[in-house]
């Protein structure tokens, strides 16, 4: 089973997908239109690129910062949370799902993904 299928089976997960670090393609499943999933994948990729660069800048200025390479990031809104680890994104309904479970699962499932493709 793919990680996207696993994620969709988790409570509160509305949509999940993967995007290419090069930005040329994405795939997703769940309750999002094709266009909105494209917008989401562009945003997720941009933020992933930014945090990776920021972490490398931080590392250059302050070695052993413990943040490099970043595994992912979360944006927590009042109703929804965006959770991204490596090149996988996931949209969670805050009322129905557990962020800790989701982050734990994604970090474990994607631990072996190399970050040098970013």
């Amino acid at each position: 089973m793919s990680i996207v299928t696993d994620l969709l089976a988790k409570p509160g997960v509305i949509a999940a997908g993967e995007y290419a670090y090069r930005g040329d393609r994405f795939s997703y499943r769940g309750e999002l239109s094709e266009n909105h999933a494209r917008v989401a994948s562009i945003m997720c990729r941009a933020t992933t690129m930014s945090v990776n660069m920021e972490a490398s800048m931080l590392e250059a200025l302050q070695p052993l910062s413990g943040l490099l390479p970043p595994r992912g990031w979360l944006v927590h809104g009042p109703g929804y949370t965006v959770c991204v680890v490596a090149n996988v994104f996931c949209l969670l309904d805050n009322r129905k799902g557990s962020i800790n479970d989701l982050v734990g699962f994604m970090c474990q499932a994607l631990a072996a993904i190399p970050s040098d493709m970013i």
Binding site: V39, I42, M43, R45, A46, M49, S50, M53, S56, A60
Partner: peptide, 23 residues
């Protein structure tokens, strides 16, 4: 060398943010 790396990173961050603004 550090300046070059910074400039490349900063350019990509600014470009990514500008792309989203345009979108």
């Amino acid at each position: 060398g550090r300046l070059a790396q910074f400039a490349r990173d900063y350019r990509r961050i600014a470009q990514g943010n500008a792309d989203q603004l345009a979108m």
